[in-house]
Amino acid sequence: MLSQDSKTRIVKESIIGEIISITGDLFAGMIMVVFIMPKKSFSYLIIMIPALLTLRGNVSGTFIARTTRDLFTGELSKTLKPIKRWLENIGATLFISLLVGVFIGIVSQIVSFLLGNEIINLFIFLSIPLFTILFDLIISIPLSSFLNISCFRFGLDPNNLVNPIMTCVDDFLTVFGFFLSLILLGVH
């Protein structure tokens, strides 16, 4: 069936996912322009935004892929048993995210210092990525697991549905979490 892909069929099947993805990401962009951009420190804060969005994709995306694979191979049941395997997946995802969050914070601080930043200190540069990542993963992990299991139960391939939906949700949560961290830390 795949070898007989016609041009029209490819466009029809891919455009819906693209429109959903673009719409979700536009809201993330909107939060950046309306709430984050007016801040005095935006020129320094923007250093870490692409890295956080990339991290979100590589950490959350691979968590989803591992859960899907475990469900297909039977290493994880529809009731998430053995729970130890799922918890180890979560633990590793959180560990990697926090470690890379610290890396992003330190590099951003160094670069912004070289660019003349006198507004934001290292504590804030470390807290922003850590809070943002945790905020995203606390919502994203249970939601993506629920979607994965639901797709699996209804006989749908989670690969085709969960990743595009979660890309859009995660991008929004990352930018929103970033904005919340600025409010909580009092960054102007």
């Binding site: 991290l55 590589n58 470690l99 890379v100």
Partner: peptide
């Protein structure tokens, strides 16, 4: 499983985050 995931992922995630930081520096 925990250690296997970390071992296989950490380098690529660090590397790609670094690429993201380069993009951020350009935007700044």
């Amino acid at each position: 499983y925990f250690y296997k995931i970390i071992k296989e992922s950490i380098v690529i995630v660090l590397l790609t985050s670094f690429l993201g930081l380069i993009s951020g520096i350009y935007l700044s």
